[in-house]
Design a protein around this nucleic acid. Sequence first.
DNA 1: TTGCGTGCAAAGGTTTTGCATGGCA
DNA 2: TGCCATGCAAAACCTTTGCACGCAA
Lengths: 143, 143
Amino acid sequence: MSERQSYKTKHREELLEYMKSLRGTHITASEVYDHMASGNAKIGKATVYRQLEQMVERGQVLKYVTDPNTPACYEYVPEGDHCQEAVCFHCKCEVCGKLIHMHCEELDEFQAHLYNHHQFSMDPRRTVFYGICGACAEKGSGR
Amino acid sequence: MSERQSYKTKHREELLEYMKSLRGTHITASEVYDHMASGNAKIGKATVYRQLEQMVERGQVLKYVTDPNTPACYEYVPEGDHCQEAVCFHCKCEVCGKLIHMHCEELDEFQAHLYNHHQFSMDPRRTVFYGICGACAEKGSGR
DNA sequence: TTGCGTGCAAAGGTTTTGCATGGCA
DNA sequence: TGCCATGCAAAACCTTTGCACGCAA
């Protein structure tokens, strides 16, 4: 299986640069598109999707899918962090739909526990915790 | 937070019965719809989606989402495995597709941590941990 | 010159929703 | 009687695709 050729274009660089600048956060394709449109460099929506897809294939960017009817989120993977290093976890609020970033020791510990006691290697890049975020819980309680 | 009422209808029973019969396998909403249509009981597509959604809310069925452009998959959770009292979590092996049920203290603690420190109430009925099970990891290591 | 990259608009496919009607309790 | 369930079709949504042109190598 031969890798497909790829050219180094201005758009590719700009997009990757933007993704890098968001280090530690995720973003949807639409948001990327909007951002690029608001700047001086206007990039078509299809191109955004195509470039993002390529970045995912190269492992430069992670893609999170939560629901079929919700836009996918993309996140830049810092150079050194490739593979197992500390990756972010995500929580998805079922009320407001927000995808929340998370990074904490307890999670790492729990992951280790899963591996040591249950022989299960959880993949944080695929796993999303569903539930209700604090803000929505507050509003909802007064329902 | 009050649970919403729900009636016991013929369609609900038939759908749940069908999901049960698929024990150990997942299926898409469309496939469920097609199956029901081929039988004598014709059930509307919207109803299939709505019932499946309710089953997910009750923890009777798990929902898997892979890609935004791919239909979601549903899988029945065997009775014995979803315990009423203690909450049950699920791990899904991405290699063999096996659904693993578990509940352990560490998990409960982690859930509590999420709530206390991140104000996030995780819903174990909707959350699925993706990863690789012990058996597959062993086989895979010789890759 | 070759073949990937790009833009636009249209297509594609799944899931949701509106609304009137039917059925459970 | 009061709600929930259902069906149908239309709507909504994100994402992909077709095609002609531009640009990297």
